[in-house]
Nucleic acid binder design. Structure first.
Lengths: 367, 367
DNA sequence: TGAATTATCGTGTACGTACACGGAAATAAT
DNA sequence: ATTATTTCCGTGTACGTACACGATAATTCA
């Protein structure tokens, strides 16, 4: 490629560099460097002089040169659950992290992985200790176990290590940023879809499955949002709540049976595929089923038409952007938005394919 | 920040640079540079030797250093419509471009703007000529006027200037990439929402407003998708199509009147706010209204509950990522996906705020 | 065989910044 | 006033690459 250079000559937008301000301030670049990095060893007077010149020339450091010259190789770590055949949800965030890692490798950034068992607080604690002894420059974590996570981030605070939450967040933490979703409002959205679909006929059932673990917070908020919507819009509707512990999941026959009622819709705050499997088995596929997350199981039933809507919280993007936030903060000193609620994407059979294709192929630089 | 360097010593992942392979191949870095850039002036033998070493060491150029050393300042241009108070749609792409421009300024990339009148093919032609005489290194364009755009990109092909389409694309063009949406499938999605909402009661009206201009392609595809869905799923439903030329828009009283029918839903393939205004005026707010795009007018009626669903094609992101594609291609020589269909986002009153906040604050590096 | 070409290659400088080192100036201690 | 400190500041090298220039070796021509 031969670039047109004529214009650049005209274009006086050549950014002023550390060298130029050194000249204007009549000092050496070393001195300028010292004030830029607050290394001290500079008299008040020359400091002011340089600061003035930087102000006038509107100096902004060249990050490309900075990265090249810097010997610092920022090391990030992530502290998230590992996925299992039974619960594949956490595969997506992992993919997002790996993708981000590849993209920022050119900048000398590396990522280490600390994966814990999402059902065992002890596992989290142990891995958290490992993270600390690894002494990273930034941490991405899913603070699933509030108490243990709270203790952990306090230590990070003391060490002045920035950290970013994904999936959920802790109150009163000094996290650099958070990427997640508004579960309450997602419940409201589900309710709206449900209302449109059911038109006040029959009973609507809210099902919480196996939420004794990490997902309980999301499930509760979703349920609350769902209820709130109907309370405000269709107070007379018949809402039932069904809590199914994970031990009873296999008892398929009585999974969603409410005597003397005609069920028109089911809202699964998690694990919709289990409900779908049940409905499919019973041949009850006229019931509207709304669930969460684009797991493979769910996708299968969405394609079959058993699940009607899935609300996606973009776990891949959450993690990806979490890593990027740390990267931008550490390498480019960029300011980072503290709260980043992912949009509540609604997936149906019709837009599923476009959605999947798109999600899997995004690159790093859409912010 | 003080980075932990212990690990880096252990970590032997230090990337091999041009210097190192020069040493291994027993040549100078200048020679290595010549084979990397195919500048010739290298004998077959040493060329092979260097290539072998690059292969063994798995050499990958350091793009950060490359950008710094290169004198090339890629200049991109965009060729899109300007927005007007009457049609604000194209404001969003412009914002996306500006945002991208800021983010890649550090890499020496600049963007020039060529905005044409979306209703006048002549305007496009003129601006296209201006683009050519500006001799850019990459072009982002909305090929609204197929014929003129087709002529234009042929010239770009001859000049070997890469170009990216947004919004719509031309068949048989050698575009680097395309960012847009699948209008047909978006129509299907709208139909599904409509079906859920109306449950086969009443008549459903498809309204095309003022689509004699650039939007005609999208509108047709949307309509086709909408019809196809109902044809496949609910053949018996009563569908009406209403084409309203933009001159008649002001005749508000008879905007959507179909004698002897009970309208339960309206699908506006464009300018939903006009329909919404009419319905609002007539007090017919029980009719389900589905439209496109998060323009301010539409948002107002979405908040009021007149419009029930808006399908968003993410125009800001389209443009943003279009610029980024050019950037990555030109500066980083990255491979670019040719087709990028944006997900069909469904916006309701419930997720509107989250959505707006998110869209306006994304940064560059989510891919 | 010697000079004139040409093909092939190495060297030097630059990009904008980081940072170690050492030197000079200013101050303090003797 | 001389030495010892401290404060302040400039120089040099490096990061990995691009590219102009010049040098050497190989080839051709006379």
């Amino acid at each position: 490629m031969t670039l047109n250079r004529k214009r650049n000559i005209i274009n006086s937008s050549k950014r002023t560099g550390i060298k130029e301000i050194a000249g204007l301030a009549d000092v050496s670049i070393g001195t300028v460097d010292r004030v830029i990095h607050n290394r001290g060893q500079v008299s008040k007077k020359t400091m002011k002089k340089i600061l003035d010149v930087m102000d006038k020339t509107n100096y902004r450091p060249n990050f490309v040169a900075r990265v090249l010259a810097s010997k610092e190789k920022p090391r990030l770590v992530c502290l998230i659950p590992f996925h299992t055949p039974e619960n594949m949800y956490w595969e997506a965030p992992l993919e997002g992290i790996i993708k981000a890692e590849k993209e920022i490798a050119d900048y000398g950034v590396t990522v280490n992985y600390f994966l814990f068992n999402q059902y065992l607080a002890d596992s989290f604690e142990k891995k958290a200790r490992d993270v600390l002894s690894d002494n990273p420059d930034g941490v991405l974590l899913a603070p699933i176990f509030s108490k243990q996570a709270s203790d952990f981030v306090k230590k990070l605070d003391n060490l002045k290590i920035p950290y970013v939450f994904i999936d959920s967040k802790l109150k009163e933490a000094n996290n650099l940023s958070f990427f997640g979703q508004n579960s309450f409002r997602s419940g409201m959205l589900a309710a709206k879809l449900m209302e449109f679909s059911c038109r006040s006929k029959g009973t609507i059932v809210i099902v919480n499955i196996g939420t004794e673990y990490e997902n309980i917070h999301h499930a509760r908020e979703r349920e609350n949002g769902f209820k709130t919507y109907f309370l405000n819009n269709t107070p007379g509707i018949s809402l039932h709540v069904l809590n199914i512990s994970s031990e009873n999941i296999n008892n398929r026959d009585s999974l969603v049976e409410i005597p003397d009622t005609d069920i028109s819709g089911i809202f699964a705050t998690s694990s919709a595929h289990i409900i779908a499997n049940y409905l499919n088995h019973k041949g009850k596929n006229q019931i509207t089923l709304i669930g969460y997350d684009l797991t493979n199981d769910n996708i299968t039933f969405l394609e079959k038409g058993i699940i009607d809507f899935l609300i996606c919280q973009k776990p891949r993007e959450q993690a990806f952007r979490g890593i990027y936030a740390l990267f931008h903060h550490i390498v480019f000193k960029k300011q980072i938005r503290r709260n980043n609620l992912m949009p509540l994407d609604i997936i149906t059979r019709e837009n599923l394919n476009d959605y999947l294709e798109f999600e899997l192929n995004k690159e790093g630089y859409y912010e």
